[in-house]
Design a protein around this nucleic acid. Sequence first.
DNA 1: ACCTGAACACCGTTCAAGT
DNA 2: ACCTGAACACCGTTCAAGT
Lengths: 223, 223
Amino acid sequence: MTRTQQPAPQEAEIARPRTPLLSRDRIVAAALALVDAEGLAALSTRRLAAELSVSGPSLYNHFATKDDLLDAVVDSVMGEVDLSMFDAPHDWRTALHAWARSYRAALTAHPHLVPVLAQGPGRRPHALRLADAVFGCLVDAGWPRGQATRIGALMRYFVTGSALGSFAAGFPDDATLYTAADYPHLGDAHRLAEHRRTIDQGAFDTGLDALLDGLELRYRRLP
Amino acid sequence: MTRTQQPAPQEAEIARPRTPLLSRDRIVAAALALVDAEGLAALSTRRLAAELSVSGPSLYNHFATKDDLLDAVVDSVMGEVDLSMFDAPHDWRTALHAWARSYRAALTAHPHLVPVLAQGPGRRPHALRLADAVFGCLVDAGWPRGQATRIGALMRYFVTGSALGSFAAGFPDDATLYTAADYPHLGDAHRLAEHRRTIDQGAFDTGLDALLDGLELRYRRLP
DNA sequence: ACCTGAACACCGTTCAAGT
DNA sequence: ACCTGAACACCGTTCAAGT
């Protein structure tokens, strides 16, 4: 191959490489907006393509399958989780507390994706980095590796469970449903949905503190 | 209307009411088996109907929509959760511990349904009965109603989160994925899936005990 | 009352064709 | 390289028709 002063001469012979209509980032952003607005079921390749003003099959130039696209969407959410507390010199409890709250915030902003992302990190880089940071923090603090694994797991259980669905909003706002004969203790359940945000956040904070209290008891008993 | 000795005489004039091919129970059982075996995506009205040797639209004689059918499937799983500990004279911690383990067992037996059932009880009788029993137990034990609500919520977060997806199986069994440069602490992650059952169960039990320890600290501080 | 086939407006994905 | 229309094998649901 001889060098020329003109860059890539053979490109001049084929059609002008006009800037592509799509990119992976544009597709992921549109997919995330669609899922947030209308739920996972609304994410069809045809609907998403329409949103981007292209035809359905165009997406297959950028993602091999719809599942691959969904993977990218999910990992973009995982990238929103703050991990900076694991770089600072905090004790494990302080770091885990801050991380869990940031993790929950990222997930509750995109609740329809929680069932997908709760399947585990898979090969998603942001999800793997998160798991690495949490495990590293616990091991560095002196937790045995087996215990550190379990703590990473149980924290994920709690955070994903709290983001999967609102507890308060799960009870229909229909007073006639909670008859004393059938459900003697649910007389006020129809008013739960009203205070949805505070109840869910309060339950999460109570659970997180209780969980960390319980873990700290075990930490003190370590040899 | 005059009574006759023969029952329902007008029935004799129309075609013999042969025993129906379908019933709600048969449909629910087949749907549950299908979802357990092949996942939520495999549950289509046409596929389910084929499994039952009828044609697709037949199902609409027994359920108004596919969502109604799914509701019935989910509530049948909730019916498998043991609530008997709430009738016996146990302290709240003992009862909650036994209930949480039974709850998790029912859900892990049908993991594909967890995202649906974690949306809350809705109008499903078994799910409402469960919420009623837990809340009643806590209030009877002396927990203030606001705290009892939060504990009901956080327990659901933890149990559904633990059943939503295996922690261990979320890490691909591919040693080349966990390069030291990218993930310095995940060197052994490819071996997690091997011990999937014990890791997940161990993490759940550790978390449950830690959670109950933390709640007991708060219980002792109650006025 | 309960089941059927045909029909409607959707799906994900492949592929040959265009630039 | 990237986008398109046509096509294939699917969806949930409605409805008129059969018994």
